[in-house]
Structures are given as structure tokens and as C-alpha cells.
Amino acid sequence: MMAPYIHIVDTTLRDGTQSPLIMFSDKEKIAVAKMLDEKGVYQIEAGIPAIGKSEQEIIKKIKQVCHNARIAVWNRLNADDINTSLACNADIIHISIPVSYRQIHEKLKKDETWLLQEIDKVVYPATGNKAEVTVGMEDASRAQMDFMLAVVRKVKQFGVGRVRFADTVGIMTPLAVHEQISRLIQETSIDIEFHAHNDLGMAVANSIAAVQSGAFFIDTTVNGIGERCGNCDMDKFIFAASSIFNSDKNERVNGEENG
């Protein structure tokens, strides 16, 4: 089997720093970004500009020191957040959209119709800028497929070429990942980025399943740091992917003939 080309999207400096027991100083953030850049990651999610001025300043510095990786910033579905982000000179404006019933009705206290209208109001204008816009489907693993398809079709109309499928609470298994990712790609042909959490210890296995299902952008963090049990560990994912995708698929069990 030919190994697929996988784009590593590193979110150590965004989701990783949301881990309550980890905090980087500004110097450390720059150093981490430089190392990731040298390591050859495709994209570095550098932070959330809406957090405040110090976060914006550090993102600008990261942009200056990284010469290869694309620098992304995370935003809520909110025009003010995006305007703040545009001032950071990032290559990618990532807009996170809650897509599960729970997130829409219980967190935002809104409904699906409101959300789709908000996408029109916020995502469409954002695509008119120099930066690429990617969209994140928050809590996708607990969302209705029909609604996700509606969201993907809508953002695709605005020129968004990639959406993130987020297993926000880390409850997926590889077979569920395969079912959902394959369907999204089959029905919309959009590029999928997979974002795993490790609550059941399956973040690496789920990310491998995502690649096998056609998602060629995989979110990782250094040492797997992140909210609760963390995200997909970059080194573990790369090690597993290189072993699995370069191995003989006709693997036999030793002693099979005696079984």
C-alpha cells in the first residue's frame, strides 16, 4: 500500500495550552513554533486572538519566525473575533462552528436556522480576505450527519475548501470515524481535517482511521497535551502512521498453519 501524504496540523499552542496544567511563556511559545516549523509540520494553530492583546502579539511574532508552516488562528463564529484575527497576519483564519444539538441549543441557546444564517453573516465576509478560511465542526462526533452536510455545503459555496471534524469529547472509535468521514467526503468532496481527543485512549487509532477514510489533515499536539486527556500525540501518530502505512497488509499470524 502506498503511504498517503498526510498534513500535520499542530495545535499545541492552541488546544494544547488549554490543558489546565500546562502554560508556555512567550519565549517558549516562539521556541515551540520554531521547532514545529523546522520539523516540517504543515500548519501551526498559533492561538486565539480574541483572548487579548498579548496573545495577538505572540501570534504576530510566531508568524515572523516561521518560514515554512502555515500559521492559523482560532475563532468563534463571531465577526469581531475574525476582525481581530485578520490584524495578526495569519495565513489561515479558522472558524469554529458548533454543530451538535447540545452545543447549538444548550451552549449557544440558539437553533440550527440561526446558525446557518450566522454562517452567511460571518463566514462569507471572512472569505473575502487574503487569508484562507477553514471551518471547524465542533462536537461533530455527536452531531447529526444531515446537519453537518448542510453546513459543509454552505461553507463550500463560500469557497471554504477544508473543514475540521472535531471529536470534541473524545468518544469516537475507528469504525465510527470511518463511517462519518467517508460519508462527508463522498457527499461533498471537501478536504477533511480530523481533530481527536484521547478520552478513551483512541486518539492515535482514530486519526489513523481518519487518514484511511480520506482525511489527509490530522490535528496533533506535542506529547499529546490538551483538554482533559489531551489530543492526538504527534510523535505517536507519526510513528504509528509510518509503521502501519508502510507495512505488509497481508500480515500473517505466526502459527496460523497450526491453528
Binding site: 490543558s19 482533559r228 486527556c229
Partner: peptide, 18 residues
């Protein structure tokens, strides 16, 4: 501390959104 299911800090939360 972040070991799935048994880590001491898996239900510690800091981020404003969360």
C-alpha cells in the same frame, strides 16, 4: 495526570469557553 479514565487531572478545566 491526563491518562484516560484514571488521570488525576482529566476533569480539571481552565479554558473560558469550556
Amino acid at each position: 495526570v491526563n491518562k484516560p479514565v484514571i488521570g488525576d487531572a482529566i476533569f480539571a478545566v481552565e479554558s473560558g469557553i469550556h
